[in-house]
């Protein structure tokens, strides 16, 4: 909640204090303050205005797996399995550690897999087996 800009800033500071590198010890505490709960449930992707330091703005073309991730996610949207807003919501659902910890397209492909499981289109064991099979095949191809 952000009734005033000052309160909003306060919330932003609390939310940024949850970052993995510098955070309160969170180990399923018995009780937490309302302020901490507000910070914990802040919608993750809503980062506009959070203080941050200048960094180099780097250029990097898409790697093959990144472009393929974009294409796979778009094809799932094209054929009506999901939509892009659902993908973005599912990225928030990953939680702060994965949202900020995974590379950009790794967030996409992770939530695509989860969406297929949630819809009952694939099962987790089927996904795990496929991952192992693909890994073995690609490793053999590259060795």
């Amino acid at each position: 909640m952000a009734t005033t800009s000052t309160q909003y800033d306060q919330l932003q500071r609390q939310a940024s204090n949850l970052s993995p590198a510098d955070r309160l010890p969170l180990d399923s505490p018995y009780e937490i303050s309302n302020e901490l709960y507000d910070a914990l449930r802040k919608v993750l992707h809503d980062v506009g205005g959070q203080p941050d330091t200048p960094v180099p703005f780097t250029e990097k073309g898409e790697e093959d797996w990144e472009m393929n991730t974009y294409l796979t996610c778009e094809c799932l949207g094209w054929r009506g399995v999901w939509n892009s807003e659902e993908r973005r919501r599912r990225e928030n659902d990953l939680g702060a550690t994965q949202y900020f910890g995974l590379p950009y397209y790794a967030r996409w492909i992770t939530v695509a897999a989860k969406a297929l499981v949630d819809r009952g289109l694939i099962t987790t064991d089927e996904l795990g087996q496929k991952i192992d099979e693909v890994r073995t095949r690609l490793e053999r191809k590259r060795s």
Binding site: D64, N68, T72, T110
Partner: peptide, 12 residues
Amino acid sequence: FEVLELAVRELA
């Protein structure tokens, strides 16, 4: 990530 993408794509 490459493995996961291909797995998801092939299953889909």
